[in-house]
Design a binder for these strands. Structure first.
Lengths: 187, 187
DNA sequence: TCAATAACTAAACGATTGTTTAGTTATTTT
DNA sequence: AAAATAACTAAACAATCGTTTAGTTATTGA
């Protein structure tokens, strides 16, 4: 055939993801992406079609990153304690490398909430829906709570998780620690 | 002297604020501001110097808007119950006019957290610090809690308030209602 | 070895960003 | 009424945005 690609798409997307994670979508330019991904615009466009395409692939890459702790949470059998562990592990990812860049999913959720980008928003919504279903399952595990309580607590935790991810960009570790402790005190 | 201004700066800033509130800073263009404020670029620049200047004035305008409920909270004498009322009134502002645009302060906090804009970030931080001081005062009111507990609960509520304001853009009223209910059950 | 083909470089694309400026209109004071 | 002055209109500014395209380089299969 012809010349081979001098880069692996998976690798350059990982780099793009890290940039989007730090800066958000709108504030990241193609110029920055060129530099960070180490390939030029032509290559970016021939591999991913558009800036939007790079972003969607970056979201996939991030999901792979969190998939480990998500699977572990899915397989946990210790109810509320499993949820708490999941929260702590999620926060650890947010603080990775000493950064405070939050969670890419939550950041994206916030940034795109007022846009018309139904594709990205759909990705976010499905993620939240999956999390809610999982929370309900874990809360039901010990069999002591009625359905109404379970639904309320699931909504509470869903919002807490999103708020926590967002807050991890600006709040101190102590504030976050205190928040988690009290959140799980009465469940 | 000479010709009079055909607009009131206070009025056009109110309109700019509503636009920033809806779209955020970066996604709002001068073209949009012209249209929304009803005056042209020259007038905007002669009155406020720059887009950044318009934004800072808009933040002031928003603070005036929330100042009422903030003062009421400051003067409340019923401890935790006063905090809860303050939370509900804050959420009502977020959902004003049937919109779901969150709280401009929290939105700005999120959008600017990774920028170098120390001016805007300073405004946000001082706002949060004031809130924290106030929360500590209200939590101390009944005199039953030790200092350590008070600090933890203040951190918890600070994060809850920010998370709530952020979540109000994307979560349903039911989810928010459930969140507040359980949040205050844990105190 | 050589035509075929895909990946590369680099420059330019039109559109839009925030900002400025030249020229016109309206109001004020003497 | 006329000179002075500030607010207005509208066009253009340079810079940057995401995207495309023409031309070159490297690798492939025949």
């Amino acid at each position: 055939m012809a010349r081979k690609k001098a880069y692996l798409e998976e690798e350059v997307i990982e780099k793009a993801m890290l940039l989007f994670w730090r800066k958000g979508y709108e504030s990241t330019s193609m110029q920055m992406l060129e530099q960070e991904m180490g390939i030029n615009k032509f290559s970016i466009y021939s591999s991913f079609g558009s800036k939007h395409g790079v972003f969607l692939e970056s979201l996939k890459s991030y999901k792979k990153k969190v998939n480990g702790i998500f699977e572990k949470f899915k397989n946990s059998t210790n109810g509320v304690e499993g949820i708490k562990e999941f929260f702590y592990e999620s926060i650890n990812i947010c603080h990775q490398d000493g950064n405070q860049k939050g969670c890419l999913i939550s950041n994206t959720y916030n940034e795109f909430s007022e846009t018309e980008d139904e594709l990205v928003k759909g990705e976010m919504t499905s993620f939240m829906d999956n999390l809610k279903t999982l929370l309900i399952a874990k809360l039901s595990m010990d069999g002591t709570k009625d359905e109404k309580t379970i639904m309320k607590q699931a909504n509470f935790l869903l919002l807490a998780k999103h708020g926590l991810a967002t807050a991890s960009r600006v709040n101190s570790p102590q504030e976050i620690e205190d928040y988690i402790e009290i959140t799980f005190k009465n469940l």
